[in-house]
Design a protein around this nucleic acid. Structure first.
Lengths: 326, 326
DNA sequence: AACGTTGACGTTAACGTTAACGTCAACGTT
DNA sequence: AACGTTGACGTTAACGTTAACGTCAACGTT
């Protein structure tokens, strides 16, 4: 910057004004400075800017597992939305562990991020309570914790799970197994509870015997389905809490010589891009990841720019996509 | 920091010494300062540290597409390896576009990252030539560009493609289709060329008619396989350049009433975690993503710490995993 | 006793920016 | 002619750290 100022025979403050388009400069000076900037290839140092403006043009994204395509697609959408705004994105994996999550939040705070987008994990409520007041805007997915610093984006999981249940019931299924992740907080159980509620409303059984709690991964779905088929062999359908689990469960069914959907129907959740080309193509609840990412970025940037405003939660509806697995 | 210094009745420099464990402090003072740090919840400001030390404890990861599980798994491994070292990771998608890639590199440079790990795209050579001299350590995957600032990690794609070809030939296939991404640089064509070489070595045809160039995605594989089956209907096997393409191709085969593997065998590349549970489970060339990420982090951190040393390329072997699709 | 060394700190300046305020000429207004 | 306003800059201090150097008492050595 000093070199540019010298080359253009102005003060560094004038260079700063040109870089930040702060006006109050004559066109002639502006051109001269710009020419010097181009000639010397000057780029402002974001670290120094960050120190004085307390604004680093970065946000942090903390999510459970980037290898789950659902998260990856949301991350991709967030990235794309932010790129145009000149923001860079830190990525942290929480591995669904509260300890790693809080570590990620702290390290992001040290890096001076302007805001954080977080898919919270279990046990998070207390962590958030400690963390939120101290820091920048935080946008949460699928969680609820009221605080002026916190923006909420809720996917209508309840609706999605109801749609899935009603679809299976309409197809004549009476005994339906469920694969859920372990439920460590009320927020975590929303899909399962809504599904069970719908079953109950139709007078169908939803006892503990038809639910298995496993990791929300392919592996988890595979093992969970094996267990489910063993402890409740008369089930004719399975509702998995996400598509990866459904993939694993389909595999388990096939290996147990249960054809999908003829011997056991399968419904997933998320509609990741592989669901439509899996064999059989998966019936699942669609969530618009692009919209999700876009809204998250809009919300967090709005909260950064105008922190005094209050921001009501945003809700995103889901949609049942019927394919070959039911 | 000033508050901590005041609370402990020392100078801020002494606090700095405690934080950075720079020694030369009495145990008693150290304890007193540490107590004040804990009590006040002081955390060093990485932005200010970055300005003075020119070291931000961040690295940038630029890759083509985070929604491809292969990249996602490498990103995950990089993240995990870095977490323990106190580094944070910027993530940028290049979308396989040279323009976006160079924009990502520039914005990372402005953020003052200490190093960059890059899965380069086509046209990159000239960009790298311009970029590399000006900046921090750069670690490249599957590319080659010799420069003291650049570290290389090569997956032995040649070996992998040969293994795949020999496997199909041994199974009796004589007419094999190939799905490749567009080849805009020699580096990009390594899998395809090695595969074609092996075919030629066995006296088998590898003409243009049996190759289709499409995007390295599920969609690309799907469309590519459709085209391949139309223009070369007598093929009995397809080699896809990555697993996602293979998934799409399997789908296309099934829809064309070609059973996999009976009517058309399929081999992929990468061995993403979904390959083993796909139906049919995919025969593919395994790449150790965890190792890849771990080595990349080790290399880039070593280059940051000791930039004067020279770092020879690292090579990673591949392995054929035979499953149901062949 | 004089001097050098060392341990345990403190002071000052700097990193590359921007915010806040200052300056000064030119111009218009009364 | 005196004064206020405004446009177009420049100066100074500050952001929160660390590097480089300074200080000073205590201690050992000759």
């Amino acid at each position: 910057m000093r070199d540019v100022a010298q080359a253009a025979a102005v003060s560094i403050k004038t260079v700063s004004r040109v870089v930040n388009k702060q006006g109050e400069i004559s066109e002639e000076t502006q051109h001269r400075v710009q020419a010097a900037i181009d000639r010397l290839g000057y780029r402002p140092n974001r670290v120094a800017q960050g120190l004085v403006t307390n604004c680093t043009h970065t946000i942090g994204l903390v999510l459970a597992d980037i290898t789950n395509p659902y998260f990856a697609e949301v991350a991709h959408s967030i990235q794309e939305s932010m790129r145009g705004q000149g923001y860079n994105m830190f990525l942290c994996n929480s591995s669904d562990s509260p300890k790693q999550e809080i570590e990620a939040l702290q390290s992001l705070a040290m890096q001076g991020v302007d805001g954080i987008i977080l898919f919270p994990t279990h046990q998070s409520e207390e962590n958030l309570a400690r963390f939120a007041p101290s820091y920048r805007p935080l946008v949460l997915f699928d969680w609820f914790y009221e605080h002026p610093n916190i923006g909420i984006i809720q996917v209508n999981l309840h609706q999605g799970a109801c749609l899935a249940a009603e679809h299976l019931i309409k197809r004549g299924h009476r005994l339906i197994g469920m694969l859920s992740e372990p439920i460590c907080s009320p927020q975590r159980g929303r899909r399962l509870h809504a599904f069970q509620e719908t079953l109950a409303r139709h007078g169908l059984p939803a006892d503990a015997n038809s639910v298995v709690y496993v990791d929300p991964t392919v592996e988890g779905g595979y093992k969970g389905a094996q267990q489910l088929l063993q402890q409740a062999p008369s089930i004719t359908a399975i509702f998995a809490q996400n598509d990866l689990m459904a993939f694993g469960a389909i595999r388990a069914c096939q290996q147990a010589n249960r054809r999908v959907p003829h011997d056991c129907a399968m419904v997933g959740f998320d509609d990741i891009y592989l669901s439509s080309i899996f064999s059989p193509a998966l019936t699942t609840v669609h969530i618009d990841r692009r919209l999700l990412g876009k809204l998250a970025v809009e919300r967090v940037l709005a909260m950064i720019e105008k922190p005094e405003q209050t921001y009501p939660p945003l809700y995103i509806d889901t949609e049942l996509v019927i394919r070959e697995s039911t």
